Computed example of a mutant assay.
Amino acid sequence: MAGVGPMSAAAQDAPLAPKVRFWNRSFMALVVAPDFPMADWFAALDHELARAPAFFRGRPLVVDLSAAGAKDGAVAAIVLDGFEARDLRLVGVEGVDASLLAGTPWARLARGLPGRDLAAPPQEGPAPDVRPAPGTLLIDRPVRSGQSIVFEAGDVTVIGAVASGAEVIAGGSIHVYGPLRGRAIAGLRSGPEARIFCARLEAELVGIDRLFRVAEHWGAPLHGRPAQVLCDRGALRLSALD
């Protein structure tokens, strides 16, 4: 049997092939479904953008065109142009045939994005008794700016601060044992029963279920104080804990 000789100098000097790595990453995207009359719908959107700019800033947006003339490519393109004019970050489009957007700047948008709705529209009749699976995610360090903590299975507890530009999103309640300066959204699964607690309220935005408020709406008296956020008769209420 012939032996294996030493590697040639050329083989020894050949660069190693780069490694290609893949991993899954979940992200939260807003799905919007514009409807006619379109001028009124965009006026309502502008009101929300002015009321809570932090909620939309940098958030990936998927546009569902099912109800907005999806059989007409020109109408679809005009609607998408309306979102671009508002500097919103479009990443996907649904409810429209790809051929209708061919030749437009919107042909690049992703279609058929996998995922599921975290908050379905209300249905007629008695609601099913759906309860969140038990579980708590413990974060024993500060949440830095730019980080997004998403835990749909239950509560999130942060031992430390949530920095400005960070967000914590929970299926249940949120507990922050430090300053809350970023965004906190609770109740994705448990709904209005969830609460948000923090040792110092300095948040950009807080939300429970489908309700949210921004710092401009709760005023200086609560700023910097221990506080809780809860749903009370269909409205979001904030109160001091000290």
Rank of each mutant, 00 (worst) to 15 (best):
G160S: 04
Q147N: 14
G135N: 11
G92M: 11
L188G: 03
S148F: 07
V4L: 10
H223F: 14
E124W: 13
G125F: 14
R59P: 02
D242K: 08
A133C: 12
Q147H: 15
L230R: 11
A43V: 08
L230I: 07
V63G: 01
G112N: 12
E202T: 06
P142S: 12
G172M: 05
A17L: 15
P60Y: 03
A54D: 08
G3I: 02
K71S: 09
P122E: 15
V150F: 11
L113W: 05
S145P: 02
L61T: 09
L65D: 00
F36W: 06
G115L: 13
H175F: 10
K71F: 10
Q123P: 07
P53T: 06
D209C: 09
R108K: 15
D72V: 03
R59K: 12
P53M: 06
W23D: 14
P142I: 09
D209W: 10
G187M: 09
L236A: 02
F212D: 02
W23N: 12
S8R: 13
A227P: 00
L205N: 07
A14E: 13
G182V: 04
G125C: 07
H175K: 11
V130L: 15
G171P: 00
S66Y: 04
A68F: 01
W218M: 04
F27A: 14
F36M: 07
I174K: 01
A166N: 02
L241D: 10
A11T: 14
D129S: 14
R213P: 03
G69M: 04
P126W: 14
D64V: 07
G3K: 03
G69E: 00
A70Y: 05
A2N: 02
R189S: 10
V91H: 04
G160V: 05
R116N: 15
G5P: 05
P60F: 06
E167V: 10
G178D: 03
